[in-house]
Design a protein around this nucleic acid. Structure first.
Lengths: 342, 342
DNA sequence: GCCAGAACTGTTAGCGGTAACATAGCCATT
DNA sequence: AATGGCTATGTTACCGCTAACAGTTCTGGC
């Protein structure tokens, strides 16, 4: 009596319905635990479904119910530790909402972002979480007209389409400058990425220079890179900037990875850290814990950003709020061992 | 005459059809570039679509056409550099096939894997790429009955459901043992993760011990960890194993990250690497380039694995093959500076 | 001028589910 | 016995789009 499923055709509700002798609607109800179904029927249906190896077709379900349990998450990169942690926050929070994150990566390209966003919206997700506030006009329009919750994350220096959760990178740069100056450093160099579309890094640098200006200082030198192993690049850039401008007494790196490379380089060369030369990075990556000295950094509240963004999309945050909301998180300076203590 | 789209209702083909004065079918043809449409009509339709900000509904499209341009990719983790590189290989290869990867993460949990797989299959993807050969019975059954190309990646020590692309981790361990013994080391310790479900790490260790046994040796000591910053754990474990068994002359780490931590620790302590103590890791992560010394490692062909897996799913690989195929890649030993040279 | 065939556009019938609304059976009330 | 209110199940009409087929007009060849 046991029916071996035909391997050629994929199963539908009808197959389960026939195998269990009830209507498709009842099967649907059982599989979604919705509505009243008698225990005996439920058992029979579940049995049949299991036996056949039935997997519901969410495409049909979504079309019929006009509900999709997907949340689009659009980020620039996966390779730099920072976004995986945001994703963790999102996933954990979404876990018990029935929502499912779907990730798209843009590689810091506005065109890719537009394409990824278009593709995602064409699946009619319940919400979108997207990194940054800067998007192409077309992307901006799509976000505004999507008719679903949109949360722009990481950054709040700008005008969000709907909601935003993040930190002020301008302010992060500003505060780092203040801390460095307070510690007595004066000849300060900057080392960063050469990515025209990394707006957050740019804003940090802007804020940093503004902070220096307040004290009547300007950047003594700067060095940019693109591509390659960040740790190695950190070494090379540090060597380059120090040979060009030997009297620098502080190096501000746009991220922890190149900062770590710089730190290793300086230790190799026997440079007196933090007395002769101070160092700082940005992000607070876990990696730093294993370094010979703790690099000064500022954490970007990545996990928290993911958590709150997911809450907003899931409608769990501030029930009352109608329109978009902006949540500003405040990063804390972790002085580590590479800035002179007051 | 310009119609502002009603922000409450989402647009359908019918809206574009009405705005451009042609049938829905013609609009559909224009937007998919399928079939013959006159230039003037095409222009009018595209214009209307753009003006309205229409985004096609792939849910409806997929249901009607029974075609979904999605490939499910199931991996255990995003946080350890190794899978992002596989994803890069997959994405780049899929780019010009019209297929789109959708990533699911299992955190090395078979239950999560089962849930993620079920969820993915319910969207009826065109194929599935999944890490590892070990799955729960239910997952195994789902994969076997899905009726789509399945590619199991990273590992080939076992029996694939359909196709497989990867390296032999057993052999990787075996060869590393041979190289270490050939370099004259005899008191060998192992440091690894305490993850019962990381089958590939286990197979490497099995192979490694087998290699030692061939030379009449056994592991002199071993140390396991779980959770936390891998770099820091590498330091701590190294300190622990060396204080417990001070006469070790080689440490084999199950991954590069803890290996790097160990290397930094040894350099801190002024231990003579590679003469008094040799070190080796596994994976060939880019990170290592920036370390003071290059850690010996074995690359896992991650990018290549992603590329080939994607080709198989896309049907671009070995046109003639009917059933599943197994592609074995061979990792190469990179001796770096932490193994004595012959 | 007629016809085959291409080029273009429209019509119809689903794809596999679910919302919304029947319907049927059963029990406790009145 | 009739009424009402459950619970348990079935029926019908779509969701938004596309495959398949059915026109219709436009070509060019003879």
């Amino acid at each position: 009596m046991a029916r071996i499923p035909d391997p050629k055709r994929t199963l539908t509700l009808r197959d389960v319905s026939e195998a269990s002798g009830v209507s498709e609607m009842t099967v649907s109800r059982v599989l979604r635990s919705r509505g009243d179904v008698s225990d005996t029927t439920r058992e029979r249906v579940l049995d049949a479904a299991r036996k056949l190896g039935y997997v519901p077709n969410k495409i049909a379900g979504a079309l019929a119910s006009q509900r999709v349990n997907l949340v689009g998450v659009i980020i620039p990169s996966l390779s730099n530790m920072v976004f995986p942690e945001v994703l963790t926050g999102i996933s954990e929070t979404l876990e018990d909402t029935g929502l499912q994150p779907v990730v798209g990566v843009t590689n810091y390209s506005p065109e890719r972002e537009e394409a990824v966003l278009y593709e995602m919206l064409s699946w009619r997700p319940s919400g979108v979480i997207i990194a940054g506030l800067e998007h192409s006009d077309a992307s901006q329009a799509m976000l505004a007209n999507a008719g679903i919750p949109i949360v722009e994350i990481m950054d709040i220096d700008g005008t969000p389409v709907d909601s935003a959760v993040g930190i002020s990178h301008r302010r992060a740069g500003l505060e780092m400058a203040a801390a460095i100056i307070a510690a007595g450093y004066r000849r300060i160099g900057f080392l960063g990425t050469m990515m025209p579309h990394d707006h957050r890094a740019r804003k940090r640098l802007d804020g940093f220079e503004e902070g220096l200006a307040k004290a009547g200082l300007t950047l003594a030198d700067r060095e940019f890179y693109s591509g390659g192993s960040a740790l190695l690049k950190g070494r090379e850039m540090t060597a380059a900037i120090l040979s060009r401008t030997p009297d620098l007494d502080f190096l501000y790196y746009s991220n922890d990875m190149i900062g770590a490379g710089g730190l290793l380089y300086c230790l190799d060369k026997g440079i007196d850290i933090p007395n002769k030369l101070g160092l700082a990075g940005f992000n607070g990556v876990e990696l730093l814990d294993g370094l010979p000295r703790r690099l000064a950094t500022m954490d970007a509240c990545r996990y928290e950003i993911g958590r709150i963004a997911a809450e907003i999309v899931a409608g769990k945050h501030r029930e009352g709020v109608i329109g978009g909301e902006v949540v500003e998180l405040t990063p804390t300076l972790e002085p580590g061992d590479t800035i002179r203590r007051a």
